[in-house]
Design a protein around this nucleic acid. Structure first.
Length: 669
RNA sequence: GCCGAGGUAGCUCAGGGGUAGAGCAGCCGAUUCGUAAUCGGCAGGUCGAGAGUUCAAAUCUCUCCCUCGGCUCCA
């Protein structure tokens, strides 16, 4: 009989008969391992390592980045391999586990509702979904029923069996059962004569796998919601009902995740925005439009003042441009064409059409063009906290994070090719300085390039694109910033760098974007006079650091959970007199702090101290000053910090000094 | 825009064909108090808007608006 050589993770090489399965090998190693095993990972070692559709690569998922291939435990091995048995200690296997859980969901749904049409059911972050077409909507009660059925099926320990069918037979199977979406998938995806299926009890599904051996392990899951989703994500296609679920190896991990969701809810900027009286959205004014209340407005002013200061230090010129401009301008820029569906409608004034601005660039370009520019003037950096209005479809609006009117911390840099790297570097440096100022210290950077196989989709010469994206990459390398390069994701008008920050509870947010533009300088005929006396076209870079002030504010609220650092806190100090007997001292204290430029509020309500403390805590005011007869007598204050608690008494002057230092350093809590 | 769930007092929510409810917040009064809620009283709503069914609609039907969870899109 043929033998194959199997290399184990410890380096041992063993010979087994050809056709042995990973689970059998696991049993040889240790029964405990076999019991815990979920899936195998194999690497070709027989010289046939090319990823041709032969050997282990036939009818399989695509290899992982490390060249390994996830493999069913009961799938026979036909060639020499390196083998790892994965258990619930391996993150790689979680994806397989969730995928199997998706099949369990589909098995339960088809059991309960035999007439549903199946869409796709992949694992996703934290869980999985499966899509179904059914005339009636799935109700919350249906979800409960389905979840119960899933537990029932899981208990039965149904094996997930892989089987191969000829493509024609697969199509027939799905045609006969009227599974039109599955037919479409088989047609599209199956590029081999045999296609793989998986069965879970009575349920059978076209699937490349792999799957965990049986349903028994799938216990910690929770169906969360139903959402409409277009078939293949294409608007215009049929809309299926997508059932989302969370799934983890253990109940504890599921519970932990649910706690994190609770934490995110606790931080929700919409909830905190109301509770802390920061902003509102008014039915009477329309959706997606933000009202900044006094406290939110104060924070915004502080952020903007700090930012304007930085802009000036870094060589930007601050400008203002009109909110409405002639529609013809947007024809010149091209927005009237490619950005039309995102713009508010035109308005006619004295027979001329005007357009509410969705972008600031054309305005800045007009300022650039207002006079002849010399190479000596470059780079020209025009910055504006520019408020723009964009028509967003109603279903996508979300608190401060997705709105219809917002203010970008926008800037456009006009420069010579020789200046581009230093300009980009300065932008990135600026972005990091801004983020760090607000207490963010984790970032992800993406460099999005064009798709060089379709140059016809892009304006600008290929050499421009290459030069620009190479400059971006060079800057990243010089600054030692790790980044991900994404081909084909750049804007049509130029490559870009996006910086995402990671907030206090680990969520990524895309804020900063630095984008080249090969389109607008040509459309507007931008020029500068070079050293040679001839006219040249400048390079143009769009750049926003916070992105949108509204959105950034929303992110900040959630990042700080409403507890703004002292320098941004709308009320920095709450004075809590113990009783009305010391009201005069409290008033004196109030005046003193105010005169030192501190944002202070006196709680002179007829309430007991604990109530005042509680209310100040709920308002997340950084410092509470408890004053009673003891303090009044000695000219002191008893300091309580919102998170550090009671800090004890000290002289007023000491407190003021410490406070001023904390404000000036813009310390993060 | 599409699918689903919602919209009752400033906030959080109960009620579900027969006169609109609670807690908190607000106002008034009592209490003079030491680090997360003192007690009592008063006031507050065209039940998202419009139409329909009905003797009678917050409640049932339809249309629209807005919010939430997704899809798509995106700062």
């Amino acid at each position: 009989m043929d033998q194959i050589r199997v290399t184990l993770p410890d380096g041992n090489v063993k010979e087994y008969p050809k056709g042995i399965t990973p689970i059998e090998i696991a049993k040889c190693i240790s029964p405990r391992l076999a019991d815990a095993a979920l899936v195998a990972k194999v690497y070709a070692t027989d010289g046939n390592g090319s990823q041709s559709k032969t050997g282990i690569y036939a009818n399989s998922v695509d290899p992982e980045p490390d060249g390994g291939l996830l493999y069913d435990l009961r799938r026979p091995l036909e060639q020499d391999v390196k083998l790892r048995i994965l258990t619930d200690k391996d993150a790689d296997a979680l994806y397989v586990f969730r995928h199997s859980a998706a099949h369990l969901l589909a098995a339960a749904v088809t059991d309960l509702y035999p007439n549903v049409k199946l869409g796709i059911g992949p694992p996703v972050e934290n869980g999985f979904f499966y899509e179904f077409l059914r005339d009636e909507p799935f109700t919350p009660e249906d979800l409960e029923k389905i979840e119960k059925k899933m537990h029932e099926l899981a208990e039965k320990d149904l094996p997930n069996e892989r089987k191969l069918l000829p493509k024609a037979e697969a199509l027939k199977l799905y045609r006969d059962s009227n599974q039109l979406f599955k037919c479409e998938l088989v047609e599209e995806k199956a590029d081999e004569p045999m296609v793989s299926f998986y069965t879970t009890g009575k349920f059978i599904d076209f699937c490349r796998g792999p799957h965990i051996p049986s349903t028994k392990r799938i216990q910690a899951f929770k169906l969360t919601n139903v959402a409409g989703a277009y078939w293949k994500g294409q608007e215009g296609n049929a809309q299926l009902q997508r059932i989302y679920a969370l799934a983890f190896y253990t109940q504890k991990e599921l519970d932990d995740y649910l706690h994190r969701i609770e934490e995110a809810k606790r931080r929700d900027h919409r909830k905190l925005g109301t509770e802390l009286d920061l902003f509102s959205i008014q039915d009477a004014a329309g959706p997606g439009l933000i009202f900044w209340h006094p406290k939110g407005g104060l924070i915004r002013t502080l952020i903007e003042n700090w930012l304007r200061d930085e802009l000036q230090k870094r060589g930007y010129d601050l400008v203002f441009t009109p909110h409405i401009m002639l529609f013809d301008l947007w024809k010149t820029s091209g927005h009237a064409n490619f950005y039309k569906e995102s713009m508010f409608g035109q308005m006619e004034v004295e027979k001329a059409d005007y357009q509410l601005k969705p972008m600031n660039c054309p305005g800045h370009i007009l300022i650039y063009k207002s006079k002849l520019r010399s190479y000596r003037d470059l780079p020209v950096r025009l910055a504006e906290l520019g408020t723009v209005y964009r028509y967003e479809r109603s279903g996508v609006l979300h608190g401060l994070l997705r709105v219809r009117g917002f203010t970008q911390d926008d800037a456009h840099i006009f420069c010579m090719p020789s200046q581009i790297e230093s300009e980009v570097e300065a932008c990135i440096d600026f972005a990091y300085a801004v983020m760090k100022n607000f207490g963010f210290d984790k970032f992800e950077v993406e460099l999005s390039d064009w798709d060089p196989t379709h140059p016809e989709n892009y304006p600008g010469k290929a050499t421009d694109w290459e030069h620009a994206s190479n400059s971006l990459a060079a800057v990243m390398n010089r600054m030692k910033i790790p980044y991900k390069r994404i081909v084909g994701e750049g804007a049509f008008y130029g490559p870009k760098i996006d910086v995402k920050l990671i907030d206090a509870i680990g969520r990524p947010w895309q804020l900063t974007t630095v984008q080249f533009d090969f389109n607008l300088p040509a459309r507007f005929g931008l020029e500068f006079v070079g050293e040679d006396g001839a006219r040249h076209q400048p390079l143009m870079v769009h750049r926003a650091l916070l992105g949108s002030v509204e959105r950034f504010f929303g992110i900040l609220i959630e990042h700080y959970a409403g507890a703004f650092p002292l320098w941004l806190a709308p009320v920095q100090v709450e004075i809590c007199p113990v009783s009305e007997k010391v009201i005069d001292y409290a008033k004196h204290l109030h005046e003193t702090l105010k005169n030192h430029g501190i944002r202070v509020h006196l709680d002179d309500r007829n309430e007991k101290l604990p109530a005042k403390i509680r209310d100040a805590q709920l308002q997340k005011i950084p410092y509470m000053l408890v004053v009673g007869p003891k303090e009044a007598e000695t000219g002191a204050v008893s300091v309580r910090h919102r998170s550090k608690g009671d800090l004890g008494p000290r002289p007023i002057a000491d407190f003021v000094k410490a406070l001023q230092e904390e404000i000036a350093s813009r310390a993060i809590n």
